[in-house]
Design a protein around this nucleic acid. Structure first.
Length: 215
DNA sequence: ACCCAGGGTCATA
DNA sequence: TATGACCATGGG
């Protein structure tokens, strides 16, 4: 994977969409909650669930661990998979408090923090990396379905590579530009919503709002 | 009426 | 290692 190619794609995405300033969320804890709730779910639905938590004054690890499962599930309802996510959120909050809160976690080295996050049931590689990058400000490149699709269509990936393979490959190629991982992932996601999803037709196709061969 | 969305777990071969 | 079932709402 070539650094220059990755950089070129980044530059064009930035030129087209502008700086995104992710993650949407007022606190680090809210970012982490969002990362769990957005698993295979549209962000608009996650916002509703987070608003429910705020309105019920439950958006804190203490409140969530003390909340009944049925109550929590009801608040999470708009984000889908509400029973699963209620359990995952509680599990995460127990761990968070047990570790001594954000300040204590922020002192951990990235590799250690990553493996302990992955040890929590319901937190897989993408959710962990969302948290590391956007809540803990660590230099981690987040791989999601959009990243795979875009990079595959642009020929940067062949398709079928494993999560870690892609992440380490990008991180190795763009090691000197770790500061860009934050904007890069945000741009890939935002781009995916505005782009032609029909089929790859040219090198530029998936870096434009409209596909010239389809439109 | 379908399709999919900023995934992850678990059972099975 | 690698598929497949399952979880579930809301918008296009």
């Amino acid at each position: 994977m070539k650094a220059e190619r990755l950089r070129t794609i980044y530059d064009r995405l930035l030129a087209q969409h502008g700086p995104q300033g992710w993650w949407p969320g007022e606190t680090a804890f809210e970012v982490m909650v969002g990362a769990i709730l957005t698993q295979n779910t549209a962000w608009s639905n996650v916002e509703k669930a987070i608003n429910n938590l705020k309105a019920a004054d439950k958006l804190s690890p203490q409140r969530i661990t003390r909340c009944r499962m049925a109550t929590l599930a009801k608040l999470l309802r708009p984000s889908g998979y509400f029973n699963v996510k209620a359990a995952r959120l509680r599990e995460f909050c127990h761990w968070y408090l047990r570790q001594g809160g954000f300040e204590a976690l922020q002192r951990m080295p990235t590799d250690e923090l990553r493996s302990t996050l992955l040890g929590i049931k319901g937190i897989g590689p993408e959710t962990a990396d969302d948290m590391l990058l956007y809540a803990f400000d660590r230099a981690v490149f987040v791989v999601d379905a959009y990243t795979r699709r875009l990079f595959s269509r642009l020929g940067v990936l062949r398709g079928g590579e494993h999560y870690e393979t892609i992440r380490l490959s990008v991180e190795h190629a763009m090691k000197a530009e770790a500061i860009l991982y934050n904007e890069y992932h945000a741009l890939v996601v935002v781009h995916a919503k505005n782009v032609c999803k029909v089929k790859p037709c040219c090198d530029d196709c998936y870096l434009r709002n409209k596909c010239p061969s389809v439109d």
